[in-house]
Simulated assay, not measured.
Amino acid sequence: MNVRAIFIDMDGTLLTASNNISQRNLEAINRLINQGVKVFLATGRHYEVTAPYHKEIGLRTPMICLNGAAIHDPITGKALQMRTIRLNEERFHHLTAENPCNVIVHTANGLYCKEKDEEIDYWTEVGQIPPRYIGDLRQAQYQDVLKYSVRTGTASPEFSALFKKEAEVIDWHDGFELVAPKVSKWSAIKSLIHAYRINPNEVVAIGDGPNDIEMLRHAGTGVAMGNAGGEIKAVADFVTGHHQNDGLADFIERYLYTPYEPYAL
Rank of each mutant, 00 (worst) to 15 (best):
R4I: 00
F7E: 09
D11R: 10
T16N: 07
A17R: 14
S22I: 08
Q23L: 15
R24S: 12
L26Q: 07
I29V: 12
I29A: 07
I29S: 01
R31E: 11
N34F: 05
Q35K: 12
G36W: 10
F40S: 05
A42N: 01
H46N: 13
T50S: 15
E56G: 00
I57P: 08
L59V: 06
R60Q: 15
T61A: 09
P62Y: 04
I64K: 08
C65I: 01
G77I: 13
K78C: 11
L80M: 15
L80S: 10
M82R: 12
M82N: 08
I85C: 03
N88C: 03
A97Q: 13
E98A: 14
C101R: 04
N102K: 09
V103K: 02
V105Q: 04
H106Y: 14
A108M: 04
N109H: 13
L111G: 06
K116T: 10
D121R: 00
E125C: 06
G127I: 05
P130A: 13
G135C: 06
Y142F: 15
Q143P: 00
Y148R: 01
V150D: 03
G153C: 00
A155N: 06
S156P: 08
P157W: 12
E158C: 06
S160D: 10
A161W: 07
A161S: 14
K164S: 14
A167T: 08
D171A: 06
W172N: 03
F176Q: 06
S184Q: 02
W186G: 00
W186P: 07
S191P: 01
I198M: 11
N201T: 11
N201D: 13
N201L: 14
N201E: 14
A205E: 02
G207H: 04
G209P: 05
G209I: 01
T221N: 03
V223W: 01
V223R: 07
M225F: 09
A228S: 15
G230H: 05
I232A: 08
A234F: 02
D237Y: 03
F238S: 11
V239A: 11
Q244A: 15
N245C: 03
A249D: 08
A249Q: 04
D250G: 07
I252H: 04
R254N: 14
Y257P: 02
Y260C: 15
